[in-house]
Amino acid sequence: MEKAFSFGQYNSMAGILTEPGTPGQNKQPIVIILNAGLVHHAGPHRMTVELARTIASQGYMTFRFDLSAIGDSAARKSRLSYEERAVDETKEAMNFLSSLYGVNKFIIIGLCTGADNAHRVAVADKRVIGCVFLDGYAYPTFRFYLYRILPKAHKLTQKIVNPKKWIHLARKITKRITARDNADTSEYMENVYWKLPHKEQAAKEYAELISRSVCLYFIFTEEQILSFNYTNQIRDSFKNLSFGNLLSVDLFALSDHTYTFMSQQKLLFSGIKNWLGANFPNKA
């Protein structure tokens, strides 16, 4: 069962709540799915609708909504930047849901700029206890460059008895071209995607999320190969941070950025379902 709502300042925002097929635990966190770029709340290929219904069938109330001036939400006059508005308006969604259901715990899912917004909301609001970032932030590491330069390296390292010697040799080669690649990657991230926060800032924000025990699930597609190419890349990027069991990462090697292919959508849905079940078990 789904319900459509107008909410927020001037009741100008539109959102749809998908209720669980079977009632979940009282005060179970509510899952909020953000806009993927400018695509309205149904999501690319109707994926957000299917995802919301899949999650709800597992017992989690799920809410998808449009930020102002996207989809079915009206434009607002505001002096705030898009990023600031996205945070404020997601907080309005959480306030609205809290007032309706008395729930003060939320899990945010975002694809593309939605992942960007999910990160900011999680940092800004302590009611967020979990985040799923679909093609979210990624920072290059030595291994990232290695795999990028030598596409076969990943397979080779699995076979080498003593990878340290091999890596030492590769490091010499890659040092010469790292600077050039770094420039390429930064340009790509700024122009095609979003402005990647400075790594130091991201580290500080992840530390804050870890201190609050926020569960983080990063899922990357093969189309993000210019920024992410192996599943341990996030842990390697932030070696000083103890993510422990709070961090989960998947790389879907065949998927495009918006999960156009059904087999990849199934993988995504199953990944999120399993992650939710493991980290936020429904005790109903």
């Binding site: 290929h45 109707r46 090697a253 065949l254 292919f261 959508q265």
Partner: peptide, 18 residues
């Protein structure tokens, strides 16, 4: 994505995510 034609992606009656 430098992949060969993959049977997972070529399905009958599947069009742009539907």
């Amino acid at each position: 994505v430098r992949q060969p034609v993959h049977k997972l992606l070529l399905k009958d009656n599947e069009y742009f995510g539907f």
